[in-house]
Design a protein around this nucleic acid. Sequence first.
DNA 1: TTCAATAGTTCGGAAGTATGGAACTATTGA
DNA 2: TCAATAGTTCCATACTTCCGAACTATTGAA
Lengths: 112, 112
Amino acid sequence: MAQFVHPATADITLAGVLSALADPIRLQIVRGLLQESGCLSCTAASPCPTIAKSTLSNHFRVLREAGLIQTSKKGVEHQNAVRSADLEARFPGLLMAILAHSVTDGLPVTSE
Amino acid sequence: MAQFVHPATADITLAGVLSALADPIRLQIVRGLLQESGCLSCTAASPCPTIAKSTLSNHFRVLREAGLIQTSKKGVEHQNAVRSADLEARFPGLLMAILAHSVTDGLPVTSE
DNA sequence: TTCAATAGTTCGGAAGTATGGAACTATTGA
DNA sequence: TCAATAGTTCCATACTTCCGAACTATTGAA
């Protein structure tokens, strides 16, 4: 499990970013990471304790391969951080534009 | 086939929008619609002639149900338009932030 | 009215993707 | 060395996507 595979900044694709963030769980993970000074273990960054470890691991892999987060091993844990600078360089304003509205996700303003 | 089901502006969700635009084909459809004064039939808005009709129909359904486009029947064709104003009202700046980079790797949309 | 052409939709099966439990690896600490 | 903890991998099941074929709806011509 040496080091993880992270795409270079130039290799981050728009479809990959959107696809990764299209999942509410992953969206919440990224939001949580940004709120917590950017470094959390996988379980600490989980938005819901009922999610299976394997599922969570998969979500982190998707985020990692999309270039949204950077994962480094630290002891028995993994430290995850949002690649804010890389994303800003690759798609200026995109992440902010998306996360600016993520609070309302799944919380309809009106009926339902 | 009465009218199509379009979500109210308030019911448009972030995950729905991101999920709909996470597909390169749908991203191209939306871009094409915006470039063409916003009204195109389904086949006219197809970014690739090899896509099966059923697949295309499904893509338009996804875009419609996500609140990205409005479809109205006009004779034998369907007229599709991006719900720019609704999206701007619901998620200010989001669509623009996404489409600003949708030309896959750095080519500017504006000067095209 | 009947027939053919066109534009989309729906159906059904094949291929791909997501989920979670069980088993596995890696690190730490006793 | 053993147990505990953090993640990953494997596998089976469930869900989604894609396409061809059949279907519906509108138009225009005979």
